[in-house]
């Protein structure tokens, strides 16, 4: 456990030194400006616009940190061979990968929570409004989503042979993962059996990111979110991350560093 923590701490520091926190400042400025602009141009419901755009900004900044971190660490670990130093230490490759996951996740969480606090502060202190409970839940769902994507991104890093490949795989998975709701809808339509089978395979292989997408529904009166749903989402995130982590681990074990 201590070894995992050490790798996580090292990764966290490495990413801080790579100026990843600037993304937080950038996102705060860009999304606040965008929210302000939209609320001026639009009619009414300024608070809703701020909340919606804030959540979009939180997810966007998290994804940006993840993708840039993957690119930066691929360069240092694999291209500049820094991974040799780490694996030469008394640490298993599984511990190394898990430590990396936690290190990535801590910096992404820092950015997301920081941005969330800024948005909530802006709405309550400046706007005089109230932060709905679903905003908090939505942030937690966002963190769960980021954990799944971090594991997936690092697995791609273990499988991929180039930085561009890792970034592209991750980005496509994010897009397709958000399209799972429509795949689900397509599965209920009249389609050729082969197409349905293919869609079903895609549906089960890719992460269902719509399961974590509460940000589009924080004002939806039809939303049901009880303990059962929390359990299902947490279990799903854990099961999916575990499968992906195992694939990454096996690939790292099989990988030969020459």
């Amino acid at each position: 456990m201590r070894r995992i923590f050490c790798v996580a701490q090292f990764t966290f520091r490495e990413l801080i030194r790579s100026n990843m926190l600037y993304i937080w400042f950038l996102s705060v400025v860009v999304f606040s400006a965008l929210a302000f602009l939209l609320s001026i141009l639009s009619f009414g419901e300024v608070q809703k616009i701020f909340m919606d755009l804030g959540l979009v900004g939180m997810e966007f900044s998290g994804l940006l940190v993840l993708i840039l971190s993957l690119a930066v660490t691929y360069n240092t670990e694999f291209d500049q061979k820094a991974i040799y130093l780490q694996l030469a230490k008394p640490i298993t490759r599984g511990e190394y990968l898990l430590g990396r996951v936690f290190g990535f996740f801590s910096i992404i969480s820092l950015v997301i929570i920081g941005m969330g606090l800024f948005i909530a502060g802006l709405v309550t202190l400046v706007g005089g409004g109230q932060v709905p409970v679903l905003f908090v839940y939505s942030t937690l769902f966002l963190l769960i989503e980021m954990f799944v994507l971090t594991t997936l991104g690092l697995t791609f890093q273990m499988i991929g042979t180039s930085m561009v490949g890792v970034v592209l795989y991750t980005m496509f998975t994010i897009f397709l993962g958000h399209g799972m709701g429509q795949v689900d809808w397509l599965l209920n339509q009249k389609l050729a059996p082969t197409v349905k089978t293919m869609l079903r395979i895609v549906h089960f292989l890719l992460p269902n990111l719509e399961a974590f997408n509460l940000k589009d529904r924080i004002y939806d009166p039809n939303l049901v979110l009880g303990w059962t749903q929390w359990q299902e989402v947490l279990l799903y995130a854990f099961a999916y991350s575990f499968v992906v982590f195992l694939i990454g681990w096996i690939n790292l074990e099989k990988r030969e560093f020459m």
Partner: peptide
């Protein structure tokens, strides 16, 4: 765990959409 996530994924769709 893959089977577990498939089972959960099917269940999730019922309340997510």
């Amino acid at each position: 765990f893959f089977i577990l996530q498939v089972f959960l994924c099917v269940n999730l769709d019922k309340w997510v959409h």
